[in-house]
């Protein structure tokens, strides 16, 4: 059992959990994820590691309510526990001194960008961070990211804060105006990452995205998370989750992520009936 040490509401639908898992905390690196299971009947869900503390022996994850399991997870309280918590999985982000790095976070993807932006700054990069959300109440980690970014840009789809529009609009402007961008890391909804990939392809700036296909075991055993990168099939859990954005076939990923839509709906309905 893995204790929930603390819980924080970041937005009405996004919660932050600090989980006691000292071994995972000791090994965690930016870009890696954990697989967790709430209880005996639960599914194995992959979630990016947002932060960790070797001293406290904890790993922090951020959960957006999107389906039955994430809804159930977000209803858990500090002092409660998870049945399984496995990690850190996947390859860590390549952190090096590249020069100027743009970190792009869309929606809950901002939680994944958080440790990457911090690590990029720590090794001496100039870090430009762009975060976006549907509306200003849904923006997360704005303050923290401001702290370890040389520049922070905020966008909202409805214009309630920062630039009225998408993260890609700001990215386009920055690439146009800035003398030189050496690397881009973009994490968010698949469509956002696809738009970013298309946007940066002509300039040839190395762009990294973190893919979020459906997974089961998360250790390279089942192939559920297969993605097409550079015309080859890769397993996101062990070959990724980060890949060269310009090589990724986003259309296959979009289709594969809809694999269990019907079942997800059914599980949600059942979950609601259970509450009534």
């Amino acid at each position: 059992m893995y204790e929930i040490v603390s819980k924080k509401d970041l937005t009405p639908t996004i919660k932050q959990f600090e989980i006691r898992a000292p071994e995972v905390a000791r090994k965690a690196r930016p870009g890696q994820f954990v697989v967790l299971r709430i209880d005996e009947k639960g599914e194995r869900v992959p979630l990016t590691i947002q932060d960790w503390s070797t001293k406290r022996g904890t790993v922090t994850i951020v959960v957006l309510e999107a389906g039955k399991t994430t809804k159930q997870l977000n209803s858990l309280k500090a002092g409660g526990s998870l049945l399984n918590f496995i990690g850190p999985l996947g390859k860590p982000t390549e952190i090096k001194k590249y020069g100027a790095v743009v970190c792009v976070g869309g929606g809950v993807g901002t939680a994944s960008i958080y440790p990457i932006a911090r690590a990029m700054k720590e090794v001496g990069n100039k870090v430009i961070t762009i975060i976006g959300a549907r509306t200003k109440e849904l923006l997360i980690f704005e303050k923290d990211l401001e702290g370890f970014s040389d520049e922070l840009h905020v966008t909202t789809d409805d214009g309630s804060k920062g630039h009225h529009g998408f993260v890609s609009d700001v990215l386009k402007k920055i690439i146009g105006e800035s003398g030189r961008i050496d690397r881009i890391v973009a994490i968010g909804p698949v469509l956002m990452m696809k738009v970013v990939a298309d946007l940066t392809r002509p300039s040839g700036i190395k762009t990294i995205v973190s893919l979020n296909p459906i997974m089961v075991d998360g250790t390279g055993m089942c192939g559920c998370c297969r993605v097409e990168v550079g015309g080859e099939t890769k397993f996101a859990c062990v070959d990724g989750p980060e890949f060269d954005a310009h090589q990724v076939n986003f259309d296959i990923l979009l289709a594969r992520n809809k694999r269990y839509l019907k079942e997800e709906k059914l599980a949600m309905e059942r979950c609601r009936i259970g509450e009534e």
């Binding site: 399991t69 559920c224 599980a267």
Partner: peptide, 29 residues
Amino acid sequence: NLNGIYSANEFLTRINLMKAYEFPDYDTP
């Protein structure tokens, strides 16, 4: 990589380890 194509490992893991044949009582579909 079309939807509906499983590796034997995924198919059997869902069924055996995750008890997907008891979905939605179990969460894995």
